[in-house]
Amino acid sequence: MSKTPLIRLRDVSRHDNSTGKQLLNAVSLQVRGGDRIGLVGASGSGKSTLLRAMAMLDRFSGELLYQEKQITHDAIPSYRREVIYMSQRPFFTYGTVEENLRLPFQFKSSQGSGRGRSFQTEIAATALDRFELPAQILDQPCESLSGGEQQMIALIRALLMEPRILLFDEPTAALDSDARDKYEQRIQEWHSESMADPEAERAFLWTSHDPAQIDRMTGKIITMDQGTLKTFPEADPNQQQSQIDGESQHDQSAEALND
């Protein structure tokens, strides 16, 4: 249990310059490989802001380390490839599903070889198949898809990039129960796929207003209120074991990994 955290946040604060409101107040948090963290709290408590900060999409004060290293300015796009923020509503550029799935691989941060560095049609087809989406959907314009299909395509787009961490901002709020089940199942599969290799372990954070879903999907629960964490599962590395135990009775997979 001496695994180094994938992400370490230290005293991350952010305030809205126009309203002066404190959006995040000295948040410290660690995310380790294998983590499935549920982020709960009232609307406006800072859940999305925290996820956005973890993807470095906004300016904030404090420190964010990835695999215990500072991220240089130039490395931020590559970092975001590994730690992908999934917005509540999916967005696409003008074009077909395939063009949108290919888009991330055209960015400079996708250069180089390795898994998830290039678009492969067979992998995309398999990914669609898992959601029971027909391969023809690749040629359809994204705006013609239903809300549920768009959400699935957005997830596939992210998964094709082989990220380490996914940050879900209420991803299933607009899905019917059938689509939601598929979505949840796919994420659990993705999460457990890499379990064999401790070096490649994956993690995700998930916000939701549905306690049952948080229970199903996550092992640790962090409660947020007015920009602060109400529960600090791993604030102090020396105390983390007991705190994790306290938070994660229903997380067998994470427990097993921690041993």
């Binding site: 796009p77 975001r80 490839r81 917005s87 999916p90 967005f91 960015f107 400079k108 941060s109």
Partner: peptide, 20 residues
């Protein structure tokens, strides 16, 4: 905004996200 930010979240540089 949503589109531009999604590109950033998927690893685009600021220029790649604003180019269009």
């Amino acid at each position: 905004r949503g589109e531009v930010e999604t590109m950033l979240a998927l690893g685009a540089t600021r220029w790649e996200s604003c180019r269009g």
